[in-house]
Nucleic acid binder design. Structure first.
Lengths: 156, 156
DNA sequence: CCTCCATTGACAACCGGTTGCCGAATTGGG
DNA sequence: CCCAATTCGGCAACCGGTTGTCAATGGAGG
């Protein structure tokens, strides 16, 4: 949105606007993709986070690994647990903060949707070059590390 | 999330996950940035859409230009109108679908936040190269054009 | 052992997006 | 000219994220 003409500024702002748009697009896509598995985008993401975790994780750990708040992750974890896809496991270090693991059916479901996902990606990813995607990932990661929230805006 | 090892697949999936994370990050950032102006991220975006429009636009036109639904755009437009930042203008072509324009105060507010935004971008964009940002924009745009929703997943 | 502080989960409220439905206006075909 | 289909705004419900508050747990220091 800048009125100034600098190309870097424009690309920066454009990137942000495209992120917003891509986010909406991808959530819609993910929901449609996950629907046949009785999942939503959000539950699928959480399923993946649990499936790929090297060790059992607590809710706050999962939240921070996904970049969302503790409560946001907890909401999905509670739902997955209700649906029998995840279970709580007593955490010896923290009586109040259990580990979450996938159940058998959670693991099986993840495997099914992940297989289908890979098939899908195979059809679609041909339109992209690995280099461009790598640069995109790196650039977005840099944006994510950047938290210019601290007080530079500071007229508050 | 793929279990398969292909680098392109991995980068594709990683891109998606980074988009989700960047979206959350940027909304949080935008909200903090806009708060001193009594705006939210969403209202700021809508303000920008109106400010930069070449001609007066109707709600459905704005919605499609922003990549959101008609109702989502309408909600923000109604709020901006209530707040006196935008006004409805009779549309000769569509009696029920007025144009939306910024008011004087809406324009002034946009100018203020945009100036501050450009100052902010100047501080932050040094960490990025114009080329990487351009590639990122292009890649995200390609994702946005891609709607693999149609029926390829098709086990529904 | 006790106290203070950080962490955690539950709960409620809110925000911004979605979908779905409805009624009114507009449009286009017969 | 009329009638059906589309477009549009309003409303309600839901989803997934946020924040804030609260009580309970855990840990560290006196």
């Amino acid at each position: 949105m800048p009125r100034s003409a600098n190309a870097l500024y424009k690309h920066f702002t454009d990137t942000i606007l495209q992120v917003f748009r891509a986010n909406g697009q991808l959530i819609g896509w993910g929901d449609r993709f996950a629907a046949p598995f009785e999942l939503t985008s959000a539950r699928w993401q959480m399923l993946g986070a649990l499936a790929l975790a090297a060790q059992p994780l607590t809710a706050p750990q999962i939240a921070s690994s996904m970049g969302v708040t503790r409560q946001g992750a907890q909401k999905q974890l509670n739902l997955l647990t209700e649906e029998g896809l995840a279970v709580r496991l007593a955490n010896p270090h923290h009586k109040r903060s259990p580990f979450y693991l996938l159940t058998e059916s959670g693991t099986a479901l993840y495997r099914r949707i992940d297989d289908e996902w890979n098939r899908h990606v195979a059809e679609v990813s041909g339109a992209f070059s690995a280099e461009d995607l790598a640069i995109t990932v790196r650039t977005l990661a840099r944006i994510n590390e950047l938290h210019p929230l601290d007080d530079e805006g500071g007229e508050q």
